[in-house]
């Protein structure tokens, strides 16, 4: 009889790309539900729009490239990208902007570079930055969390706003929207207010923005799940959050009235989400152990720098993209020592 042949190892582990991506999606669920809880239906509507756009775009590009789209769609990477993008978007963003961002992420940032595994930049963050610089007004029009405003938009109202682009009858954007805590902190600090004053606002919770800090906690839970399942390793999140805490702590210690408490940095904006879900995107991140520590630490540092002195309220997207560019260089200089290689040997 004739037997099947193949190269060793003949046994392959249980892991595959679909499982990895599925695990990431699973880990995103608690944080996403928390966002829905605090910011209403817009979050989930954005998510649906972004995911649909991404999947359609990916299928279209694959068929244009004359490849089989099925295995690529089944690996769920497009869904992860769209999901992360949607979480970064304001809940009532006009639908076509979400579609644009999502398609840009998939078509330009991912597929034009060769598809999964070849993109030098994090597609979700590139899509977010495109929208942020193209539509600064809508992209900074956040909602106050329900706990602050006391008003929850109904599903119908949310759909109406997202698809028509105008607020429902009897309401204006001014009554509806609010700045994010990070945004407010920035603008009020620039008006020379003291932190103790700023924190009088009802937007503030124990550490960061009210609601936001709980969302952060739920994403943290998801991140810990990924760590436990070994989908990501500790280096990038730990070094990124560590350096953010360290640098913000340093400035806070120097002047607590003009620099917010370190925990504020941690639990505002996309710091937690970024540390566990975005900076850890393996394709665009550094891959060597030492390199990952440097990569994460530099992201943390840039987050603080851009938040404090930069032109935009949040900084995770910019920092991640900046360090994406540096990742190959970091990897080159941080190659691990090969077994049996002496310390002074050249790499």
């Amino acid at each position: 009889m004739e037997f099947a042949t193949g190269s060793s190892p003949h046994k392959i582990g249980p892991q595959n790309v679909t499982r990895v991506m599925g695990m990431v999606l699973l880990a995103l669920v608690p944080g996403t539900l928390a966002m829905w809880w605090y910011f209403g239906w817009g979050v989930l509507i954005n998510l649906m729009i972004a995911v649909t756009a991404a999947v359609v775009a990916e299928a279209a590009v694959m068929s244009l490239r004359g490849r089989d789209a099925r295995p690529v769609l089944l690996d769920l990477s497009a869904v992860v990208t769209a999901w992360l993008l949607a979480l970064a978007l304001p809940p009532l963003l006009p639908w076509w902007q979400t579609v644009l961002g999502s398609m840009f992420a998939i078509v330009v940032v991912k597929q034009l570079f060769g598809g999964i595994g070849y993109n030098p930049f994090n597609p979700a963050m590139a899509g977010y930055v495109l929208l942020l610089v193209s539509f600064p007004v809508t992209m900074t029009r956040w909602l106050p969390p329900d706990v602050v405003s006391g008003q929850a938009l109904s599903l119908a109202d949310s759909l109406h706003i997202i698809f028509s682009g105008t607020p429902p009858l009897g309401q204006t954007w001014d009554t509806l929207s609010s700045a994010t805590p990070l945004d407010q902190m920035r603008s009020e600090l620039s008006e020379n207010r003291m932190i103790s004053e700023i924190r009088q606002s009802p937007l503030w919770g124990d550490f960061g923005g009210r609601g936001w800090e709980w969302i952060g906690n739920w994403f943290l839970l998801g991140g810990l799940f990924l760590l436990w399942r070994r989908v990501i390793n500790w280096r990038i999140p730990a070094s990124m959050l560590g350096s953010l805490l360290l640098v913000s702590g340093l400035f806070w210690a120097i002047d607590p009235e003009t620099h917010p408490f370190p925990a504020f940095h941690l639990f505002s904006g996309a710091a937690i989400l970024g540390a566990f879900f975005i900076a850890t995107d393996p394709v665009s991140a550094s891959t060597t152990p030492k390199g990952q520590l440097i990569y994460g630490a530099l992201i943390g540092l840039f987050v603080f720098i851009i938040r404090t002195w930069g032109g935009y309220p949040d900084a995770v997207a910019f920092s991640v993209l900046l360090l994406n560019m540096a990742a190959p260089t970091i990897d080159y200089y941080t190659q691990p020592r090969v077994f049996g290689q002496r310390k002074h040997d050249d790499a």
Binding site: A4, G6, S7, P9, H10, K11, I12, Q15, N16, V17, V20, P71, D75, S77, G114, G115, I116, G117, Y118, N233, P282, V283, A285, T287, T288, Q335, P336, R337, V338, F339, G340
Partner: peptide
């Protein structure tokens, strides 16, 4: 011995480097 799965693009997850007993890349 189910080693006839189709090959997919590398997603640079780095697992291979983590398990390499010779610490290669």
């Amino acid at each position: 011995a189910p080693n006839n799965d189709p090959e997919r693009p590398c997603i640079r997850c780095g697992e291979c480097a983590r398990v390499c007993p010779v610490q290669l890349l």
